[in-house]
């Protein structure tokens, strides 16, 4: 663990897990599996899904409630066993919840007495998935690379100490970020209520809750960097901008609904004007 160069993506850590904690690795499929697995075997990917229902529930709750997770949460829990189950299904669920409730919000705000027929917009799924997947992959990568670039770890500190400085692996950052989006799932259902003040209140609350968890958990590593203040501001504001963007784009309907209604009869008007 002393040389930081070869724990890109944290693969080295996984080999350590397989040796030190054999009881948690699934043994049913291949009892005589060697610790070195090929990238083309399904067992290789099973180590990223080596998690039980209780752990997933615990991680989701930890991502929503500030101060519930200890400061060493990232190092003692996520770093030891980062999973991709949570991030994958949290983002997938969020994509579809936003698309579905965005449509619902549109439906509620649609003037049903008018002649214009309401259509649902399936393509919200593509927009939602693009921005969510970009966020959960780019932000961890940015944080990880800034930390790599700016933190100079001394080799003489004992890496076994819980308080020892360290840089989180890219995989555990992706895990942390994936779970941090979980709070937006119930919020995006509540965003369908067409009250502007309530929508903004939800944006602020959700961004504060999960953003403060993110910063609290990442703080021990962020403090090592000389750009720590920029990183903290960047993480918090990106999280807030994401929430505000969701709300404004998918749920803030009045302006777009009006434009749709106006757009439909406009060709007829222009024909009349020319003719």
């Amino acid at each position: 663990m002393s040389s930081a160069a070869d724990d890109l993506l944290g693969f080295k850590d996984f080999d350590d897990i397989a040796v030190s904690q054999p009881k948690k690795v699934i043994q049913d499929e291949s009892p005589s599996s060697s610790p070195k697995l090929s990238m083309f075997q399904i067992e290789y990917y099973q180590q990223f899904f080596n998690i039980d229902t209780n752990d997933v529930v615990e991680r989701v709750i930890n991502s929503m409630i500030p101060k519930r997770a200890s400061a060493s949460y990232l190092k003692t829990k996520l770093e030891v066993n980062p999973d991709l189950y949570g991030p994958f299904w949290v983002t997938t669920t969020l994509i579809f919840t936003i698309a579905i409730s965005g449509n619902l919000a549109n439906f509620f705000q649609h003037d049903h007495s008018s002649k214009f027929h309401w259509h649902y917009n399936f393509h919200l799924v593509s927009y939602a998935s693009t921005c969510i997947i970009l966020y959960t992959s780019l932000m961890p990568f940015l944080i990880w690379s800034v930390l790599k670039y700016s933190v100079d770890l001394n080799d003489d500190t004992n890496p076994d100490l819980e308080s020892a400085p360290y840089i989180p692996s890219l995989l555990s950052l992706i895990c942390l970020y994936g779970y941090s989006l979980a709070v937006y799932i119930p919020v995006s259902v509540l965003w369908t209520i067409p009250l502007l003040i309530l929508q903004w209140l939800l944006v602020l609350t959700a961004a504060f809750l999960s953003g403060s968890v993110l910063i609290n958990v990442l703080m021990p590593s962020l403090k090592l960097s000389k750009y720590s203040i920029f990183l903290i501001v960047g993480i918090a504001s990106a999280h807030f901008v994401l929430a505000a963007g969701f709300m404004l784009y998918f749920f803030h309907v009045p302006s777009t609904a009006a434009s749709v209604v106006v757009n439909i009869p406009s060709p007829i008007i222009s024909v009349n004007a020319t003719g």
């Binding site: 229902t53 579809f96 579905i100 027929h117």
Partner: peptide, 28 residues
């Protein structure tokens, strides 16, 4: 499935059918 992970396997199936039923419900 291993019993401890049953919910983790059922949840994606739930989501899969939910999305398709959304397509069905909102088809006009």
């Amino acid at each position: 499935q291993p019993p401890k992970r049953k919910a983790l396997v059922i949840y994606p199936m739930f989501l899969f059918y939910f999305v398709i039923s959304w397509l069905v419900a909102s088809h006009t």
